[in-house]
């Protein structure tokens, strides 16, 4: 009983790191510009396919592929921001929600036409590691390492570089930042790009251990919403914690009740946190 609990919890937590990366992208965009990016799921899916194509067509190691995939995600973000978001950045929420949803439709539409919706997977088995009674697939461990690495890089960027500080300044108060000479449009585009970059990377990591289609980003987008709210919308570190909570729950719940109850608990918790503590579990009252 205990060993089973421990191993499913470990599984969940390792997955939670990857969830956290995806959610961090969403929460970063929200924190900086109060936009909920409904194209987040498709970008995650594009990250999966980018990794897959590099691996199958060019034979690139999927973990090395993450670097170009990250750049690709960044670029996607610039394009989406410039085309769809910039014009509605000050409009009511509905406009940016629908604009990013339109991008979602475009990506899914093109993606379906190009890749069809039959499942793909990256065939790159690395075996499992045995630690005591735990058996952990190496792909999961590497994904966790990748997630931690990207989180650390984001943290260093936001807190120790000039550009990163500009991002935080714009998030804090866009008008004041503009008055101090920070080019806010560029910073907004960059933040959006960082957000989609994290989404693409998360997609690449997930693709190393789960099969996927162009539609696979959707569930992760929904999970990202839940995670962001748990950790506090706009709080990247909270998103990582939220990811771990969600991953942990997904690991633990099936030992107590049928797996199909997992989403009931997740979304119930989501609505509850929104109502009781909209600033998130970490946030100030």
């Amino acid at each position: 009983m205990f060993s089973q609990l421990a191993s499913s919890l470990t599984d969940g937590l390792l997955l939670g790191f990857v969830y956290g990366v995806a959610a961090m992208g969403l929460t970063l965009i929200w924190g900086v510009m109060s936009v909920i990016n409904l194209a987040h799921g498709p970008v995650i899916a594009l990250g999966m396919f980018a990794t897959y194509l590099m691996f199958t067509l060019l034979g690139v190691n999927p973990y090395l592929a993450l670097v170009p995939v990250a750049f690709f995600g960044l670029l996607m973000g610039f394009v989406i921001y410039g085309v769809a978001v910039h014009r509605v950045i000050n409009a009511p929420h509905l406009s940016s929600l629908l604009a990013t949803f339109a991008v979602n439709m475009i990506i899914i539409g093109l993606g379906t036409a190009i890749f069809s919706t039959s499942p793909q997977n990256i065939d790159f088995p690395l075996g499992s590691l045995e630690i005591g009674f735990l058996t952990i697939p190496v792909t999961r461990l590497l994904a966790t390492a990748g997630a931690v690495l990207f989180t650390a890089a984001l943290y260093l960027f936001l807190y120790f570089t000039r550009t990163g500080k500009a991002v935080r300044a714009v998030a804090n108060n866009r008008r004041a930042a503009e008055l101090m000479g920070i080019p806010s449009s560029l910073v907004l585009a960059l933040s959006f790009g960082l957000g989609t970059m994290l989404a693409a990377v998360a997609g690449g990591l997930i693709a190393t251990f789960f099969p996927f289609t162009i539609l696979s980003g959707g569930p992760y987008e929904l999970k990202s919403f839940v995670i962001c709210v748990l950790g506090g919308l706009g709080n990247p570190l909270g998103a990582l914690l939220g990811g771990l909570i969600l991953g942990g729950l997904e690991g633990l719940i099936p030992t107590f009740m049928p797996v199909s109850w997992v989403p009931v608990v997740e979304f119930g918790l989501f609505v509850l946190v929104l109502l009781v503590k909209p600033s998130g579990l970490l946030g100030a009252k």
Partner: peptide, 25 residues
């Protein structure tokens, strides 16, 4: 309805997903 703006929008998504998951069980 005490929530405003995007928080309300997100909550309604959560309610729909929770309802779907509940009905499935």
């Amino acid at each position: 309805l005490r929530l405003r703006g995007a928080y309300f929008a997100l909550a309604t998504i959560g309610i729909n997903e929770a309802a779907r998951a509940f009905v499935s069980n």
